[in-house]
Design a protein around this nucleic acid. Structure first.
Lengths: 211, 211
DNA sequence: GAAAGTACGTACCGTTGGTATGTCACCCAA
DNA sequence: TTGGGTGACATACCAACGGTACGTACTTTC
């Protein structure tokens, strides 16, 4: 049972993150002042600094919220499928959708790395959308006939994650997002077909020692 | 023939960009003050604002310099090769090298997008390393037997560029960069093998209409 | 119902990006 | 040679911003 004070406190905190998410999305990190945030939430800086340690902290709260929404959306899109390759395609489409959201583009992709720093950004990523990509990549590539070690699977995940992020960015800025998404879908599908063919053609040859 | 005043002026401008590049690389954009830059270059803010319109402008000058160095390095690595696939592999290795440079990581990858904005960042990219990737992708994929239109080739370039950037990032933060680079090389080589196989196996089928 | 603590509000500070204005050396024409 | 004009800065200053110190009212607890 929550006490009344806690309910009030949670409410103001939520209001702060709400406004912060909107302003950070619209104007970016540096162009968003704490004064504007507290004014929008109808509180003062005292309240903000009571709930958060500083500007970076409230940014991170908005960041996490945006990323968890994207993660949930992608997770929902993939959970139905049984075949790993189908699951991968469904995940890709959901990813391309999620990455077009303005908040994701501005807060996560653009401001995320520079505000949080490489390290924290990587940490945050790894327990959200990146985790889904990793899971899918492993389910697709980690057949018994393949001797891909953990680090090699990580490498593939990184590559696909980067490819999809860049592809998503190009979709987001396109004049015709639907057509652009279709092209990305075709291109990555094509690459996946190549991998699949290779998987069947020379199963067991091993790529880890290739130079 | 340059007058003495111009030589002095060029010298101070170069000194400013030198210091800016170093400080932006070491501490990032927001943690680098103009006071620190002008102090390091042994001039005053008046000089800085005489040569640049503001902080963003001098950042962009450092940005361009770092990117042009990377571009030149990659260009040098690829110019010898005749076979497109070999050229691509050589370019990939040079890219993975270039992306490990601290300046490239901090200024171009981390701060670049948020400071310059998506738009200007994309512009800068497109006439440097991205242009090389695009050229290589086209030389590899644009065989006569393939009916890939311009937009589809762009899509492939975006995807590969994103993949390589992400891969480069993972190499840069790795405990053992050499081993990580080898893994990336193997993984992308594997993907390329898949594409090549597909190119020969079902030449002319066309991927543009695939959904 | 008093003591303790939470959840803020208020007032203030140092730093920072940016600007307005002054100044002096240098170039060029007469 | 010289003197007006201009480029290349230096100096002084400002507003905005992130952050801090401290005060206060309302709640919970005992």
């Amino acid at each position: 049972m929550k006490t009344r004070r806690q309910r009030y406190s949670d409410s103001t905190k939520r209001a702060l993150v709400d406004v912060a998410e909107r302003l950070f999305t619209e104007h970016g990190y540096s162009a968003t002042s704490l004064d504007a945030i507290v004014a929008g939430a109808d509180v003062t800086k005292g309240a903000l600094y009571h709930h958060f340690s500083g500007k970076q902290a409230i940014f991170e709260a908005a960041f996490e919220r945006i990323e968890s929404r994207a993660t949930a959306s992608i997770g929902r899109a993939t959970e139905g499928h049984r075949d790993p390759w189908e699951k991968a395609r469904a995940g890709l489409r959901a990813f391309l959708e999620a990455v077009q959201e303005p908040g994701y583009r501005q807060v996560v992709i653009s401001d995320g790395p520079s505000v949080l720093g490489h390290e924290r950004f990587r940490e945050q990523e790894e327990r959200s959308t990146y985790a889904i990509v990793d899971e899918i990549v492993r389910s697709v590539l980690a057949g018994d006939e393949w001797a891909l070690d953990d680090q090699m699977l990580d490498t593939f995940t990184r590559i696909f994650f980067g490819a999809m992020s860049a592809a998503g960015g190009s979709v987001a800025v396109s004049d015709d997002p639907a057509a652009a998404a279709a092209r990305v879908d075709a291109a990555i599908g094509f690459i996946m077909d190549g991998l699949r063919q290779l998987l069947h053609a020379e199963a067991g040859s091993g790529v880890t020692s290739r130079t």
